[in-house]
Design a protein around this nucleic acid. Sequence first.
DNA 1: ACCTGAACACCGTTCAAGT
DNA 2: ACCTGAACACCGTTCAAGT
Lengths: 236, 236
Amino acid sequence: MVQQRAVEPDDTPPRARPRLSRPAIAEAALKLIDDGGMPALTMRRLGQALGVEAMSLYEYVANKDEILEDILGSLFNEVELPDQNDRPWEELACELFCAFRCMLLAHPHAVTLVASRAVQPLEALAPIEMSLGIFRRAGFGRQGAVDAHRVLQSFTIGYLLAETSVLNDPTAVPNSWGTAAYALRELPADTLPHLSELAQVAIDRVADEQFPALLMVIISGLRTELRPEPGTASPT
Amino acid sequence: MVQQRAVEPDDTPPRARPRLSRPAIAEAALKLIDDGGMPALTMRRLGQALGVEAMSLYEYVANKDEILEDILGSLFNEVELPDQNDRPWEELACELFCAFRCMLLAHPHAVTLVASRAVQPLEALAPIEMSLGIFRRAGFGRQGAVDAHRVLQSFTIGYLLAETSVLNDPTAVPNSWGTAAYALRELPADTLPHLSELAQVAIDRVADEQFPALLMVIISGLRTELRPEPGTASPT
DNA sequence: ACCTGAACACCGTTCAAGT
DNA sequence: ACCTGAACACCGTTCAAGT
């Protein structure tokens, strides 16, 4: 091999080194979202946060959408995947989706982002892969594993949306749960008897206890409805 | 009672009758969303659709947010509540949330709207009231009923988001399910074995069959985990 | 290769003015 | 009471120009 080093001496013209990078941009963008919600993420403000004119960002990124994709990838990487030391699949599944919720509670304003995006970047698929693996190893069939994952994933996203949507609401009170606002309004007891009766209960329930409890309710259904007889070899 | 009629003769000055109304505005706004997605709903375009300047809308509505609230109310009223002729609660619950999904499938671009809003207007609460009533009559306790409703509601919203989110994706293929795009990409089988194996299964599953099936899985879990012993009087 | 600044086609909303 | 038109403070993105 011909050594091609030192073709350029050390005193090369100070070729412009990038002050930015896609990961740095994504990080700053996520910080903007965390601090001020989705509307705070603006190309102009993002440039400002990075000490650069907004239009310079287009050197690194085709459009705003690509930045959102990068954020998505880094978010899913924050999920702390549980260890797989042959514990029961019920426990593993519960822990995995609790970890997913935990990650999003650290970025509550990004919940709508992960909820509304169809396709995640490749780096974001590790949690999904793990979820499918848990069910396959537990003996679920191909379709059973897909179904099981879909129930828990859909529920988790829906729950997180309800839990955090009060943040996106202009008329929000500094309480968790959107339903809190119901109790503060006059609910007509004649037309909405159950809602009036249960509004307070709905507020009092602490999400950190309710969420894993509800996960286990679903997992119980998965065990009795979707899982083949224990002892049977998993169908392929 | 003194008759106060005919104080004004018929030839009153043609006092400007409103050409618009809040319901008419909400209806036109929903149509814009249905046709072109959430970004298509713009005060200027909405005015144009109603044959009026954008700023005239502010005679009827304080801001764009109020229009979104009105849309929310009319959407929930479209849900066809099932008849309550003493059928098993499992059946009623399944039908109610299927009806909810059915309504939103008629307005797929509005899914993100109902998903991200914390507080619904009063007219929108009938389906929630019915859901709570179903569980209470089935013998669920106060907290059990709230929990049961929350699982099914969260799951339904999360499922609908996944089902329709491909519509909001710029890189979408005209297939249902966001996961479709996974299969069209190269999935590395070494790092994501389960996902590669199951991507096709995930696409083939027809949502209209999968959704009620998954509802019944959850309902099965509700029956075994949340419901008190049958025959017990419902605790208040 | 990297960054800038003016410009374009949009937003939601305010405000003074018309009838 | 209802509607208009100009204006303000924003958007994302393009494009020609600088180094």
